[in-house]
Design a protein around this nucleic acid. Structure first.
Lengths: 226, 226
DNA sequence: TATTTTAATATTGTATACAAATTAAATGTG
DNA sequence: CACATTTAATTTGTATACAATATTAAAATA
């Protein structure tokens, strides 16, 4: 690529672009209803339209922008109301996943065990506190592996629509370097109940998610413009 | 474009490509786990890779293919088990939408009224029986407008992940030219209850969806390869 | 022979160019 | 002045070319 010798203006990949736009939209940098112009964004970020198009499509499946019927994409925007809706949706989908996990005889633990291993590995170097970005990724991995256990691809697809937005929120609200031990143990408790096929897992999951809800939304509201 | 004088080999738009690939995957034309190569598909359909990339992304958000971490996309495939999961998900999401519609004081009927108008318009020309493609589109429109009434964009985004797949299934199973009147009245009944904010709407919705489930899946199984 | 390294191939990701379509502006007409 | 019609602009959609990466095959080493 032509700009390889200029490290500051190096071309961004689609994934970085999505991440940046997603955060901006959540924080209210774009007015709801305003139109996103591919060439404008491309110029501003110093890349071509190709990765921008990819990025817009990803944002669209996350519900942050809308693909207009005549072409073009407009910003849907994000409010604390939507953050609440997001938490409720997450709870709804994960409850459904858990219900199916507990109901079916055959299922595969592997993903859940692996994500717990990742969480544990991070405990082994307590001197360096995990960043909120790292923690949010570990959290998403854990919950995705839970949904994957249900072996229900439509459910997983639906869950995936909100996963990236959710992760961005966790990162923005700067959860949770100081309390990583607590964070870990909450997931440990939930994972154990799931693996034991203990029906209490459902309540634990609800508590796990509802607990996080209010504090995260409160912090999020401080950071949002609108 | 260069092939405009050759109507048979005219270049397909991304939306047509998605539609074709979606149907093929649902019918089992592609082996689950097999890899989709952009250039191969592009050659076969007689277009460039650009709309193919768009199409793959759309299929990915529908859960029919998977974007591999190192790039590339593989077919997830579709079984009657997944069709059942799809119906359950649809019910879950629409129940949630309805719950919020009935709980909130302020909401906008417009989309629902409009989609009912479309259904009625089709009744006014009974001499021409609606095709399954047309009926499936009207059905999806109705149910999308229901979800839109809840004014919950994460929920709508999740619902949208399964909408196109669902519509394709309706079309494949060739529902329901002969019984359009019945089809209409079922939706009329549901819409009236919703507009009246009658709590019975929840049960009516469940009946509405569960009724369709078994017959559609039975017909679908006849058409699928695997 | 088995395993690592290296080279060749295949495939995706991005940039650019152009065509098609949409939107906005300008012009004409009642 | 309002309203339709035409013209110009903006913007998206697709095609092609190239660069970067990943995958496979081949060669080299133990």
């Amino acid at each position: 690529m032509s700009k390889v010798d200029d490290p500051l203006a190096r071309s961004l990949q689609a994934k970085e672009i999505v991440k940046r736009l997603r955060t901006d939209i959540i924080l209210g940098e774009y007015k709801s209803g305003s139109r996103l112009i591919e060439s404008k964004v491309a110029d501003r970020l110093g890349c071509s339209r190709a990765p921008i198009r990819t990025a817009f499509q990803l944002l669209s499946q996350e519900g942050l922008v809308l693909n207009l019927s005549n072409g073009g994409t407009e910003v849907i925007g994000f409010t604390s109301k939507q953050a609440r809706d997001l938490f409720e949706l997450r709870l709804l989908l994960e409850q459904k996943a858990l219900e199916q996990i507990l109901a079916n005889r055959s299922f595969h633990f592997r993903p859940l065990l692996e994500s717990m291993e990742h969480l544990e590995q991070r405990l082994s170097v307590p001197e360096i506190a995990p960043s909120s970005a790292e923690t949010s990724i570990l959290d998403i991995q854990f919950h995705r592996s839970l949904v994957m256990m249900a072996d229900n691809s439509p459910l997983l697809a639906a869950w995936n629509t909100m996963a990236n937005v959710f992760q961005a929120i966790l990162e923005i609200t700067n959860m949770t370097s100081a309390t990583y031990r607590q964070f870990y143990e909450s997931h440990r408790r939930l994972a154990d109940l799931v693996i034991q096929r203990n029906p209490d897992a459902a309540d634990e999951l609800t508590r796990h998610i509802v607990n996080a809800k209010e504090i995260i939304i409160a912090r999020l509201e401080q950071n949002m413009k609108s």
